[in-house]
Simulated scan of single mutants.
Amino acid sequence: MRLLFILGFWLIFSPAYAKTPVLFLNPGYSSESFWGDVDSLLEASAARLDMQVETLHSNRNHFDMIRQASEVAGRAKLPAFVLMVNEKHGGLRMLEAFYLKPVYIQFILNDISIEERQNLLKDPHWRTYLLPAVIPDNQDVGNLTAMALVKKLGEQPAQLVLISGDKTTPASVERTQGALAVFQAQSDVTVEQTVYGQWQEDKAYQQAQVLLQRYPAIKAVWTANDHMAFGVIRALKEKQLTPGKDVLLSTINTSPQVLALRRAGEINALGGGHFLAAGIALANIRQFKDTGEYPQVHISLFRLLEPDTPLFDALEKRDWAGLLDQVLDPTRIPGSL
């Protein structure tokens, strides 16, 4: 509740300060459902907080992401703050570019490891300029979506497969660990295989075709993001199977397409909310800049998304300003973030 009050205060009542320059190194595509939502929420937060945001996209190419970090660090006029994502463990390389530069760095969504952070904080520069990360509990959303899928399956014996993102990105690893922990604890559920769709619809479509041929009795598919779920749905329909009925589906994200599929019942379990991380990071930066204190509070961003709830309705409308009001309102139910 304390965190919600702080965030609500700064988002709603912040006075007109000079705009603070913040740069976001977005590892995804601007047209990609999740990363597009992150951009939209970030822009709404920046407008509310009177901050200036620049976003660079590396289009799922972590080499370009590292190159962009070096180019930004070489600018004559540096941003005051940089938001980074440790996509495919590129975080340390990006940090190198900003060493001894007067730029505060904040990781969001995927952090460097605890050991890496502890080692960096031995250096006086990083003790000053490396801020606490804003990281959702990816293991928790894997757990939540898997439990929802198991509940939908009932007590009937079931074979299932998982399509994870990649083998190295912390979000992918942790979501899969959370889901597997649930599935492997069920006596009636058999996990046949885990594959890696690289977050891509076409890749997951090809994998689903093979998996449906290999395991014709599959009753459920868990996927780590919505694009991969779309690929599974294509493969199911090609085999004259009804998504959400013949084969149950679980996924993560908040794109208009996945929300429509959840409402229609083709997606049986949907988790999301982590797109809020960048907006919350801006609110934390606002407080840090104005008070010198950074909020030290654990944040749980994920929740199951159910049709005909206030959050689901706000996401369908893509009303980012209204969504900020809703999720950051301290009078709302505790634990909503």
Rank of each mutant, 00 (worst) to 15 (best):
L3G: 05
E174W: 09
L162G: 14
I135L: 12
G142T: 08
K88F: 02
L323I: 00
S31E: 06
V141S: 05
K203F: 10
N225E: 14
G265I: 07
L337E: 10
P15F: 06
A16T: 05
H89Y: 07
S70M: 03
G244A: 14
V297G: 06
Q159P: 06
G322A: 12
Q326R: 04
L180M: 14
P334S: 08
A185L: 10
S45F: 01
S33G: 06
L315G: 00
G90H: 05
Q200V: 05
A16M: 03
E306L: 14
Q207T: 08
L337F: 05
V210H: 15
W199I: 11
V327R: 00
T169W: 09
D64E: 07
N59P: 06
E155F: 05
I285K: 03
E115H: 10
D325F: 05
N253K: 01
L83T: 02
E155T: 15
M84P: 01
F63H: 07
N253Y: 00
W10H: 06
A18W: 01
S14R: 13
G273S: 05
P307T: 12
E87Q: 07
K151Y: 11
H298N: 10
M51W: 03
L241G: 13
R127C: 09
L301N: 04
Q159T: 13
D319Y: 03
V173G: 09
L130G: 05
S113Q: 06
M94L: 01
T251Q: 04
Q257V: 01
V85A: 09
D123L: 14
G271T: 03
E116G: 10
S164C: 13
E87A: 08
F312Q: 01
H125R: 12
F107G: 01
Y205H: 13
V232M: 06
G165P: 09
T242G: 10
E192V: 11
D140E: 15
L304C: 07
G197Q: 12
L120I: 12
G272K: 00
S14I: 10
